[in-house]
């Protein structure tokens, strides 16, 4: 087990280093940096002034050197400066993390709350009208763009309450905060719950086909006991593994949802930074997302071992 953890940690380090190189290269392969954008919008271009700005921002250094500056800084906790606000990148990013984290946690909570039971029901009632209905609902959950769902929710609020639940000031107390976040979280969570529901259903069906289930039935165990006593525990296991996929999935949903609801989290910030070619922000944020996804997958794998005694990592 210890050997496994060590190996996985090393592999994670390799993945993250590779990721940093790919992100860095992607952002610099193409022409056009912040200096171009600023000077293009100004109309008049003084080459000397532009070169001075590029020098100041370190954009004229050779690319490998730029990469080294970034990585060595990153390891010391120095993320560089935002080109746009000229504040340290860490000061721009750090306050936004809790906002997105709360939103993501709430969305994950919603998605498990609805996805898991509905997936089980769908499997137990396989090929009944209820199953068909739930499957169509879950598939439409995967088909509705989350930003459109968010816009429809805003529309419903305008129609019924005359206001829109859009983020303006930081909420005063926990209750307000929960109320404010729960609506966008539901919009993101709906999509994720559809994913969980589909996986739970197919996993449950898989388990229900197994011999020990037939044995239990043959011994006269009630449907309820077979479905919930024998099958559910084993069916839920593979669903745990997808929480890792879910992390990646949620971030995709958060990007558009934070934009629609005007929530100042890191997902919306990433889009803004990309539009401005604010490299220090973009590369650090993408890296941060990568770290989260890789770490989640690692933790899920470890969790899996403790949940399923049949699995042993050597």
């Amino acid at each position: 087990m210890v050997a496994y953890i060590v190996r996985r940690t090393l592999l994670m380090a390799v993945t993250l280093i590779g990721m940093s190189i790919i992100i860095f290269a992607l952002l610099r392969l193409v022409p056009g940096n912040i200096a171009d954008i600023l000077f293009d919008s100004a109309g008049f271009v003084d080459p000397a002034e532009k070169a001075a700005l590029e020098d100041e921002l370190g954009l004229s250094d050779p690319i490998p050197l730029q990469y080294w500056h970034w990585i060595s800084g990153l390891l010391q906790g120095d993320l560089g400066f935002s080109y746009v606000s000229e504040l340290p990148a860490i000061d721009e990013i750090a306050p936004r993390i809790p906002i997105t984290a709360k939103l993501a946690a709430l969305a994950l909570f919603f998605s498990v709350l609805f996805g898991l039971p509905l997936g089980v029901i769908s499997a137990v009632k396989q090929n009944t009208p209820l199953d068909y209905f739930l499957r169509v609902i879950s598939l439409s959950g995967l088909s509705l763009p989350s930003f459109w769902l968010a816009l429809l929710i805003l529309m419903a609020f305008v129609t019924w309450f005359g206001t829109i639940p859009i983020y303006t000031d930081p909420p005063d107390n926990l209750w307000d905060e929960l109320l404010l976040y729960s609506i966008p979280a539901a919009a993101v969570g709906f999509r994720s719950s559809a994913l969980i529901m589909r996986l739970t259903r197919s996993s449950m069906l898989e388990v229900l086909r197994q011999d020990y289930i037939r044995t239990a039935k043959a011994k006269g165990a009630s449907d309820r006991s077979v479905n919930y006593g024998h099958a559910l525990g084993n069916a839920v296991l593979p669903v745990v593994t997808i929480i890792g996929i879910e992390a990646a999935f949620l971030i995709g949903g958060l990007i558009v949802t934070e934009t629609v609801f005007n929530i100042p989290g890191i997902a919306r910030f990433l889009v803004e930074a990309i539009q401005w070619r604010d490299y220090p922000i973009v590369q650090n944020l993408v890296m941060f997302i990568g770290v989260i996804v890789v770490l989640t997958n690692f933790l899920v794998d470890l969790l899996y071992v403790s949940l399923d005694p049949r699995i042993k990592y050597e």
Binding site: I22, A248, I251, G252, I255, L270, V286
Partner: peptide, 13 residues
């Protein structure tokens, strides 16, 4: 490495 980044983030960049 590529799979560790969400599809939309990758496509955005």
């Amino acid at each position: 490495i590529m799979q560790a980044l969400p599809l939309l983030v990758m496509a955005l960049v």
